[in-house]
Design a protein around this nucleic acid. Sequence first.
DNA 1: GCTGATTAGTCAAGTATCTTGACTATACGA
DNA 2: TCGTATAGTCAAGATACTTGACTAATCAGC
Lengths: 120, 120
Amino acid sequence: MREAGHDWFTDARANLLAHVARAGTPQSVLISRMGISKQAVQQLVDGLVAEGVLERLPDPADSRSRIVRYTAAGAAAIRDADRIKREIESEYRARIGDQRFGMLMDLLREATEKLDTGER
Amino acid sequence: MREAGHDWFTDARANLLAHVARAGTPQSVLISRMGISKQAVQQLVDGLVAEGVLERLPDPADSRSRIVRYTAAGAAAIRDADRIKREIESEYRARIGDQRFGMLMDLLREATEKLDTGER
DNA sequence: GCTGATTAGTCAAGTATCTTGACTATACGA
DNA sequence: TCGTATAGTCAAGATACTTGACTAATCAGC
């Protein structure tokens, strides 16, 4: 992502963005799903808002809540990320073959789904 | 590990300890294998020496070099870590079965071995 | 309708884990 | 033996977390 010109991209920010739905997600939902403190989420969202990747909108259903959503620039960056993810996956496919790659993905999903992640 | 009484245990320290051989390892080898800066390794080893987990010994073959080795207390902690690792693995075995677990391990090894890790 | 407890978010300060830059001491090769 | 590379250290700064203290809004029960 850095090579693709997204200088703001870091691991912690990628982890947060993975939990932001295209239609937007309340900040409180990010907190409960990410397993880090609400203050950490606050700071990460602050940074991504400053970078123009995300925006905070009022929640019409609850005036305490804020909806976090991609800006147009943020959505474009996510499309780049999806492309790069597919490129990296194809390296692993080439190593072990399409069929074995599919098997690997299935086994990983089975082994990890509904896992107790020990949230804080 | 924290629950087992090893309060000093963190992810970054675990990652370093995974590269320390039982007979001891030169600090320079840790640096080249871990993909982080020599200063970061320095600080992590400093901390683990202060905790009494590791010790620095002179390298008889090269007076610039220092050998990093487990103390008796450190070796005991690693035995706990191995036990806990086996306990966690057994949870995944129970989820998907022994045979499929073995298959998963083989596929992961195949897909990742001799991978260019982009060291710095 | 109040009120007390819960929930969502923010501000501030501190810690852990990295980074780069500058430096010393030792080893090695032409 | 002189220049260069290697091993390690010290210092300062950035990022990504933490806990604590606080405000504002919601909600459940009387």
